[in-house]
Computed example of a mutant assay.
Amino acid sequence: MTASAETVAQDIKRPPYMGYAMAAAGATLFSTKSILIKLAYAHGIDAETTLALRMILALPFYLVIGIHAFTSMKASGKTLPDTKLWLRVIGVGLIGYWTSSYLDFKGLEYISAHFERLILFTYPLFVVLIGAAFFRQSIKPKALLAFAVSYVGLALMFSQNFAALGASAMTGTLFVLAAAVTFALYQLLAKPLIMTIGPQLFTCIAMGAAGVAVILQFLVTHPFENLFVSAHLWGLSLALAFGATVLPSFFMSAALKQITPQANATIGMLSPVVTIVLAMSILGDAVGLADWLGAALVILGIGWFTLSERRG
């Protein structure tokens, strides 16, 4: 075997460490989203207004990065996306970053931050189930075992917190569960598009389309002067836009280019654990022994799945 052939063989066998790291970073940053939303809701604004403020501040980042990604593709002579591809990316963006986000924000009007995160992160199961049902993807036994361990942990945390919620629990649960299903569908649909046009341009087109939809939705349902909020709310919105939206969205898209949607989804289950810690320290939520035991099982499931996938 020649030196170049050996290098290629090593690259094929080399585990996608960077993909795993970016998936974990994206999950951690996304976990701050529900905390920031709850802090904003404490000032009396609703889901539509919070989502609009988030996108108004996030759109300039995506515009600048998207123009740079497009001009770089053009300068390097790469094939630019045609109209059909643009429409596909826009459609996927509307599913993942408008529909799913709106359902999630609405759910947070009814339930606690860490309870929302537990429900939302049932989406790895939907990734596997939808992938097997509609995308001809196999369900690996190791994935099922990892899910079994992780979901036992999630069930412990779920049962611990469910009794504390009132009649609004069902409404919030249904909103967030619908968000989980649409987010799983987004993950599966996004993968081939990211491989075609790259994570940067894909993310900017998808988020740009979702941002326009969010702002139009707000203008249809709310008076424009509702955007005149306090400086503190603008600060929370900026943190929500950049730290909990722009950065993790690029991390997630970059991770999806290197690892499978199932691996990305499973690693993303770290997010509920991070949210519990933040909810306890920032929002003052009570966290019991069952929560911590459940968190340990979630981490065990994530770690086993990630290591086993590296070995093939």
Rank of each mutant, 00 (worst) to 15 (best):
37 I>A: 02
38 K>S: 13
38 K>I: 12
39 L>M: 13
40 A>P: 00
40 A>Q: 14
46 D>H: 07
46 D>L: 10
47 A>V: 03
47 A>P: 08
47 A>Y: 11
49 T>W: 03
51 L>G: 03
51 L>D: 02
51 L>K: 03
53 L>R: 04
54 R>P: 03
55 M>P: 00
58 A>K: 02
60 P>W: 08
62 Y>C: 05
64 V>D: 01
64 V>L: 15
65 I>Q: 03
66 G>S: 06
67 I>R: 08
68 H>Q: 13
68 H>F: 13
72 S>P: 06
72 S>C: 05
73 M>W: 05
74 K>R: 15
74 K>M: 05
75 A>Q: 13
76 S>Y: 10
76 S>R: 12
76 S>I: 05
77 G>V: 14
78 K>C: 09
82 D>I: 11
83 T>S: 11
84 K>D: 14
88 R>S: 07
90 I>A: 13
92 V>R: 02
92 V>W: 03
92 V>A: 10
92 V>Y: 02
93 G>Q: 03
93 G>E: 04
93 G>C: 04
94 L>F: 10
96 G>C: 13
97 Y>Q: 09
99 T>F: 15
99 T>G: 11
101 S>Y: 10
101 S>W: 06
103 L>S: 05
103 L>W: 09
104 D>A: 11
104 D>G: 00
105 F>Q: 01
106 K>N: 09
106 K>Y: 09
107 G>R: 09
110 Y>R: 06
111 I>Q: 03
113 A>F: 13
113 A>C: 10
114 H>P: 06
115 F>I: 08
116 E>F: 06
118 L>M: 13
118 L>Y: 10
120 L>I: 11
124 P>W: 14
124 P>Q: 07
125 L>A: 15
126 F>V: 03
126 F>A: 06
128 V>Q: 04
130 I>S: 05
132 A>D: 08
134 F>L: 10
135 F>M: 12
136 R>V: 06
138 S>Y: 07
139 I>R: 00
139 I>K: 04
140 K>S: 14
140 K>G: 04
141 P>N: 09
144 L>R: 01
144 L>Q: 02
146 A>I: 06
146 A>H: 05
147 F>D: 00
148 A>R: 05
148 A>P: 00
150 S>F: 08
150 S>V: 09
150 S>W: 02
150 S>Y: 03
